[in-house]
Design a protein around this nucleic acid. Structure first.
Lengths: 160, 160
DNA sequence: TTTGGGGTCATACTTTCGGCTGATTTTGGG
DNA sequence: CCCAAAATCAGCCGAAAGTATGACCCCAAA
């Protein structure tokens, strides 16, 4: 029973079309028995039927074929300027300045925007130690503050 | 002449339908003169016409109804690598962040390694004012300290 | 064994920075 | 002329950064 109802729902349009056609044929048979139609204009009659069923066909097409939505994806390129990722560590300057590995690490994190406390946490050392390395770093780079150290470090190719 | 051609192209389906109908009517008139059709099965004949024109209607519907088009615009970021030496000021980001000219000036001098006092001297303003601009700058760049501001500023293309 | 380099840590102190509050003046657009 | 935004300035205070001093540890080379 549910299967039959499902069938009805699905093919509603087709069933309606069949019923309509059957009714029309019955009407036609009735008129034929009356002998009214064929005494006048056959072309007009046929033409009316043709147009009527064309309209039916159009209606049927609308029902059967869901108009597919065509999705057009337009990609618009937005240019984003990115500095070249070609950082080449300047080993020569590193040697020349006599920086230690630890000092370079501190400089890198400094440039990344971390506070001394945060640097300590990341390198698993105390704030005291960060300050010591920092102080030594400034001396070797001949600067007075971290912003200068960062600027000098980038210029010398020690940090990206 | 071009307008007529345009008309033909646009209403191609409708014109075809009209021609087809006219031809059918002519055929029917010819058969009527032969008195062949009405001696057999009228219902079969009418039924055939009905189905034929239904098919025509369906075809017409397919032609007349254009499938809806939905346009989606997708912005694709295209990374353009520029040599490091070619700093391109990111005007868009500047506008977006709502920085003021003065704030940008302070950021530039910050990145160059100057202290607030020194920045004040260079811009002919007081230490107080530098601090104010600095504070506003941090807010707009969503950072907590100058090293972060510098880092963010470089990333966003606000400073070289 | 001694020496030098690098790393770690603490403490005390000074300087600079950053947040907050409030006020006034200047500038540019409607 | 009016108004909002930008710029300027001051004062106070705690946080963070920077300086100076000293101590201890480890390791390799002389």
């Amino acid at each position: 029973m549910p299967a039959f109802r499902d069938f009805l729902t699905r093919h509603k349009a087709l069933i309606l079309y069949g019923v309509f056609l059957a009714l029309l044929l019955l009407l036609l048979r009735w008129l034929e028995l009356r002998l009214l139609v064929f005494n006048h204009s056959t072309e007009m009659y046929i033409g009316a039927i043709a147009i009527l069923f064309t309209a039916l066909g159009i209606w049927l097409a609308m029902k059967l074929t869901r108009p597919k939505e065509k999705t057009i994806i337009v990609e618009v390129e937005k240019e984003v300027y990115v500095p070249k990722a070609e950082f080449v560590f300047n080993e020569a300057e590193f040697e020349k300045r006599g920086l230690s590995r630890r000092e370079l690490e501190v400089l890198e994190l400094m440039a990344a925007g971390f506070s001394n406390q945060e640097i300590g946490a990341r390198l698993f050392i105390s704030l005291s130690t960060v300050k010591t390395h920092s102080s030594n770093l400034f001396e070797k780079l001949d600067v007075k503050r971290r912003t200068q150290a960062i600027e000098r470090g980038k210029k010398l190719g020690l940090i990206p």
